[in-house]
């Protein structure tokens, strides 16, 4: 699904150059659930943004579902983002003047899906994240966890190949975090490929593979036994 070879990325700030990614080799197969870990500033977000075609690498090759991602014009990039990728952000990034339903329907709008069908599909995904009763609410009428669920529904709406989540639980408390992770696990159970950036160990262990970034390189990449979020939550509740 994802093939990365010798990926480099530097940021130019004035006269200084910050070499953030120094030759990343990485691949993900369909259906995997991978977490990318590392200390703050280690380049996790930079890496994920390049995977998500929101940013461009300086060097290296990147294949997404067999297609080379290199020097695409914005129009093609927009199409690929729409078809192949679903984004989940730490700060949710919902459009605040659109209802939950309209937010979820937005990728379908850009796909050219007709309104009636869009509404129907968006409703289906809202149901899937358990928020069908909140369809007509605006984001500011929703809790953090609910907002992230809407964002997840939106990311799923265009039925992308890969879900990319940058610290999806970063703005949520533990309980809500686990609920969101439970949902993400469920989506992965259905076969969706998921890449998730986190700096929290417990969240990382809820995925099936952990990749560790340090000084611009992958220093560790290992398969782990997945901790189910619902069990973790039960355990945490028992502790209290």
């Amino acid at each position: 699904m994802i093939e990365i070879n010798e990926l480099h990325k530097s940021y130019q700030t004035g006269a200084n150059s910050l070499h953030v990614l120094k030759g990343i080799n990485f691949s993900v197969k369909e259906g995997e659930m991978v977490s990318i870990m590392g200390s703050s500033g280690s380049g996790k977000s930079t890496f994920l943004n390049i995977l998500g075609m929101l940013d461009e690498a300086d060097e290296g090759t990147y294949f997404l579902d067999g297609k080379p991602i290199r020097n695409l014009n914005e129009k093609v990039a927009a199409k690929y983002r729409n078809q192949f990728l679903g984004f989940i952000f730490q700060s949710f990034n919902l459009i605040n003047y659109k209802t939950a339903l309209d937010n979820v329907a937005l990728p379908l709008y850009y796909q050219g899906v007709k309104r009636a069908e869009r509404t129907e599909k968006a409703m289906h995904y809202l149901e899937k994240v358990g928020l069908s009763q909140w369809a007509t609410h605006l984001p500011n009428q929703l809790s953090g966890g609910q907002k992230q669920r809407v964002a997840i529904a939106r990311a799923l709406a265009s039925d992308p190949k890969v879900l990319l989540a940058d610290e999806p639980t970063g703005a949520l408390d533990t309980k809500t975090s686990y609920e969101v992770m439970e949902l993400i696990q469920k989506i992965n159970d259905e076969g969706k490929t998921i890449l998730l950036v986190t700096h929290e160990d417990d969240i990382a262990h809820m995925t099936k593979r952990i990749v560790n970034l340090k000084d611009g390189l992958i220093i560790d990449d290992s398969i782990v036994t997945q901790v189910r979020a619902d069990e973790a939550q039960r355990k945490a509740a028992a502790h209290v």
Binding site: G52, L54, E74, K75, A78, K79, R81, N82, Q83, F87, N93, L94, I95, L106, P107, Y110, Q111, R154, S158
Partner: peptide, 16 residues
């Protein structure tokens, strides 16, 4: 700008 970034992440082309 942020909203436009979100729209582009969701697949809005520049001309859109």
């Amino acid at each position: 700008t942020n909203e436009i970034g979100v729209r582009r992440a969701l697949g809005a082309s520049p001309w859109n």
